[in-house]
Amino acid sequence: MENVVTKNEMEIVYKKPKTITDTPMHYCPGCGHGVVHKILMEVIDELGIQDQTIGIAPVGCAVFAYDYMNIDMQEAAHGRASAVATGVRRVLPDKYVFSYQGDGDLAAIGTGETIHTVNRGENILMLFINNGIYGMTGGQMAPTSLIGMKTTTSPYGRDAAQVGNPIKITELIAQLPGAYYVTRQAVHTTQAVRKLKKAIETSFKYQKEKKGTCFIEVVSNCPSGWKMTPVEANVWLEKNMFPVYPLGDIKSPK
């Protein structure tokens, strides 16, 4: 073993973003939330906008996001994050505002707020974490649960005849003129995380230019709710979630 270099002689090439607090995250092992939190804060650090950013996290697993993101934040009632974000952005028109919402929040109880916020072209970033299940309440069916997916409230598998099909809300809102940039990303691989980071950077740039609503869906996992190991969950996600929720830009400015 020649040429062995000790840590002291090396430089740090990657560390936890400074805007992520030291509070250990309550998320289950392997949960995508932690990765999205980290990348979001990394972008905020790199853009130097910690002092100009207000985040909104509603009911859902990420309701405690303010424990981990070292920025001013507001917790919101279930489904109302984009309305709260509208209130913030309207009275602070030169600040950066994002909402961080789960599938139940954004695509079930908050569908009305989601559609109308985007329709008004509110200058906010809506981050939509879609893992096809209600994590916080213990693994119930989400509006985005896949056909046949077993959850605690669809124990025999989601049946379209009973409860409808998985809702592709991202494609729906992309139809609205207020949506400026709409994309679907993931965090299951290094490459995917890098693409998400680019999408967040792009969204904040558009927000500064007041272009309208930027909407990023992140197809994520729920190892606990899916009853898999994190590694299995990320394999399952690629095989089952991506065919229904294909990655890539859905609407991007010319």
Partner: peptide, 21 residues
């Protein structure tokens, strides 16, 4: 090799990566 892949996918921001300058 200090490629940082492990740290990027770590949900708990638990990994610091060092590389030979």
């Amino acid at each position: 090799t200090g490629c940082i892949n492990c740290a990027i996918v770590c949900p708990d921001s638990a990994i610091t990566v060092y590389r030979e300058s």
